[in-house]
Amino acid sequence: MTENAVGGGGDTLGIDPALLEILACPDVHHTPLALDVPAAELVCPTCSRAFPVRDGIPVLLLDEARLRS
């Protein structure tokens, strides 16, 4: 589990922990993403976008992201 994971419990939503270490926001700033297990999303703390994780696959498309409030 990465240190920027949210939710705890060791759940990675089926994403390899080594991959979680290198995933970054696809927007221009490339901030490392945090895992939000209850929401099944990867979250960018810089731009507040949330990217869905579907069947263990992170969908890092800006068009698929939602803005978190």
Rank of each mutant, 00 (worst) to 15 (best):
E3Y: 13
A5Y: 10
A18Y: 04
P58I: 02
G14K: 01
A65N: 01
T2M: 12
F51K: 07
G8V: 09
M1F: 09
D63C: 00
T2G: 05
S48F: 10
H30E: 14
D36G: 04
R66S: 10
P45I: 07
L67S: 10
M1S: 15
L23P: 09
G10R: 10
V37M: 02
N4C: 04
H30G: 04
D63A: 14
D55R: 05
P17F: 12
V59E: 08
R66E: 11
R66V: 15
G9Q: 06
I22M: 10
A40Q: 15
R54S: 07
G10L: 11
P38Y: 10
L13Q: 03
H29L: 13
E21S: 13
V53T: 03
S69L: 12
L13N: 06
A34I: 01
C25V: 02
P32N: 01
F51P: 08
L67K: 12
A40G: 01
V59D: 02
T46R: 15
D63Q: 11
G56I: 05
E41Q: 15
L20D: 09
P58Q: 02
T12Q: 05
P58E: 05
L33G: 03
P52F: 07
E41H: 14
L67D: 08
R54N: 06
R68P: 06
T2L: 13
V59T: 04
A18N: 13
L23M: 10
L35P: 11
C44T: 04
V6Y: 14
E3I: 12
I15K: 08
L67A: 11
N4T: 04
D11R: 03
T2C: 07
C47I: 05
P38G: 09
D36F: 07
T12S: 09
D36S: 12
P32Q: 00
A24E: 14
E64L: 01
A40N: 09
L19N: 09
A65Q: 02
P32Y: 02
A39R: 14
S69R: 15
A40C: 08
I57Q: 09
E21T: 12
V53I: 05
P45R: 13
A50I: 06
D11Y: 00
C25G: 02
F51I: 03
L60F: 06
D55I: 00
T12D: 08
G56M: 04
A50L: 07
V37L: 02
L60S: 03
I57E: 12
L33P: 05
T31C: 04
P32G: 03
R68W: 02
